[in-house]
């Protein structure tokens, strides 16, 4: 697997979320994802970015344009140094909420992407890695 291009963005304010969506859309367009997949990727990015902002007390997004020979892919890595998630399995079930009405976030996002990884340590932070491959 080869990284064709990468970029990083801060997620500190609610305005940053708008630039996350714009930049992710740009990457997805460059990788020639169809309109539906583009929308799924940008929506997934928006969901995770909001978690990073609200529960991780802000963090960063790294975007990677990938190629594995036959398929193109977009990988998004969200990192925060927040309180971490105690029970990841439970956080992934639909309807789970940890405050102001978030519930569909993680489980729903997983369905929008092809790969979904989450690593978290209590009091150290959370890293969510999501990837979508061209069809």
């Amino acid at each position: 697997m080869e990284v064709l291009k990468s970029d990083s963005l801060p997620i500190r304010t609610s305005e940053d979320m708008v630039s996350v969506r714009t930049s992710v859309r740009k990457f997805a367009t460059e990788l020639r994802f169809g309109i539906v997949d583009q929308t799924k990727i940008v929506t997934a990015a928006s969901e995770i970015a909001r978690n990073t902002l609200d529960y991780g007390r802000g963090g960063d997004l790294r975007m990677e344009a990938l190629s594995n020979g036959t398929k193109r892919g977009l990988r998004l890595i969200f990192t925060d140094r927040g309180p971490g998630i105690r029970d990841i399995e439970r956080a992934l079930t639909d309807g789970f909420t940890s405050g102001n009405g978030m519930g569909l976030g993680l489980g729903g996002t997983r369905r929008l992407m092809d790969e979904f990884e989450i690593a978290s340590k209590v009091n150290e932070g959370t890293t969510v890695t999501i990837t979508k491959w061209s069809r």
């Binding site: 309109i35 539906v36 583009q38 929308t39 799924k40 929506t43 969901e47 639909d94 569909l104 489980g107 729903g108 996002t109 369905r111 929008l112």
Partner: peptide, 10 residues
């Protein structure tokens, strides 16, 4: 595309 995504999101 938005409708499909929302449905997938649940």
């Amino acid at each position: 595309a938005v409708a499909i995504t929302l449905v997938e999101l649940g």
